[in-house]
Design a binder for these strands. Structure first.
Lengths: 252, 252
DNA sequence: CAGCATTAGTATATGCCTGATACTTTATCT
DNA sequence: AGATAAAGTATCAGGCATATACTAATGCTG
């Protein structure tokens, strides 16, 4: 018989329910501080830069002290993910479609500011307060529709997965580019070599694709970000179209 | 002036262009063997089980020998991903919709057999021969449509991303479940606690969701796999609906 | 007011890992 | 018969996560 309001430690830490028992030595450190320090390091050095020694040092403590506030490094990553995600913005939209569109763009904006978020290994269903809040926002947007729960969840996670994937892809490319000046050359070499490897006999469609304007387009005047925006919208609208079909179908 | 048929070493290895120069000591090891051994370990111990010492030992060599055949551990992961993906099956379908559906299920089947594939960190656009072959298959399926390249690529990566995401989510859950008998209890506790944390005032929709039948459904008679299949199809058909709208629009 | 239980943080150590460097071994080519 | 060059090995440095056993600081109890 577990007590009815028992909450596992990781969840307690996720939801900011630190208890600071009156007994014993008082803590000079807390979960919030640890997570904030870790997020700061991730912002500066990327996710691989986050190590327990470095987080501890940035706070003026030893590595082992962190284990008083966090169960493991994996748990720290989960805590970081929810903290860095932050609360969703207020989305007031005339209809579900515009609402989901704004939700997707807001989500994307957060990830673009912290690309390392797209690389945090997901360890289970959303369970942090911010994750739940974003979920709530999406569900609220769809509350006027007649979709059942399974469809709502499906639509939301489809959009969210799409956002993560597209931001990750773009940021990887950008990182590669920033990694030295000669990187641009290397990248061009890489593309050129790949185009040569894609034999038109074995891969007719792919070969046509690789030699299409899409990959030639040399010094396009439009900035990369604009292209990325267009690509992103393209896929997003496709998803929204699919959802629209479902909604129309559920109304009959 | 780089030679016009210069191919970067990682790409050469990906495409099986090992050169075995006639000079010097002949190699008793090659990229293929290394990758195969690594894949075998990943199949048994998961992606975290793959370390250079273990791969080398399973071949009867020392860790450092691997660096003669593979640039880095990250590169090894890339090679593993393409090797383990394997070639796509022949997909003969009457129309693009059935074709893409089969393509998605085939992709999913591969990932289900090797769940660690969904956790290999992606390091750039598809560039291995098998990845290209899968891409070719998808493009061929859509070749009858009037979609432009951007839409085709968008549709394909949307589906592929969805497949990866859904398999990863399911396999995580299954792993957690297999990780000891008490895990099921812990999981139930977790869900229960979470349901209590989701305050209906702050999160009205989410709270209703958490207390809906979707989460109660105790010992459902239908096996997990069947439920997963249904969920998967749900999202997939949604995507296909979206693509259908695009295709219809591009025909006008 | 003394000391005890309790909690926070530290010191130290183990066993891993990736990868650099310098070496030995084994083959071909001249 | 060497010279040459590549394959594989030995050793090592620098990091990392984390277990265990410690010291330090506080409130509670007598």
């Amino acid at each position: 018989m577990t007590s009815d309001d028992f909450v596992p430690a990781p969840l307690r830490r996720l939801w900011g329910m630190s208890e600071s028992s009156r007994l014993g030595r008082p803590a000079s450190l807390d979960v919030k501080a640890v997570v904030a320090a870790a997020v700061g390091i991730a912002d500066r050095d990327g996710l691989d830069g986050v190590t327990l020694p470095k987080v501890a040092k940035s706070l003026g403590f030893t590595s082992m002290s962190l284990y008083r506030h966090v169960g493991s490094k994996d748990e720290l990553l989960t805590l970081m993910a929810d903290a860095a995600l932050g609360p969703p913005p207020d989305i007031a939209a005339p209809d579900w479609r515009e609402g989901l569109r704004r939700w997707a763009f807001a989500h994307r904006a957060v990830l673009q500011r912290r690309p390392w978020l797209t690389r945090v290994p997901v360890a289970g269903p959303p369970s942090g307060p911010h994750q739940i809040a974003w979920m709530e926002a999406a569900l609220a947007i769809m509350s006027g529709t007649l979709l059942d729960w399974a469809h709502k969840i499906g639509a939301m996670s489809l959009i969210s997965g799409y956002v993560v994937q597209s931001v990750r892809q773009f940021s990887e490319l950008a990182e590669g580019r920033a990694e030295g000046q000669g990187q641009a050359d290397a990248e061009r070499d890489y593309g050129r070599a790949l185009a040569r490897l894609v034999n038109p006999d074995r891969f007719p469609e792919a070969a046509r694709l690789f030699s299409s304007t899409l990959f030639e387009a040399p010094p396009s005047t439009t900035p990369d970000a604009a292209i990325a925006d267009a690509d992103f919208s393209l896929g997003l609208e496709l998803i929204l179209d699919g959802i629209a079909v479902r909604i129309a179908r559920s109304n009959t």
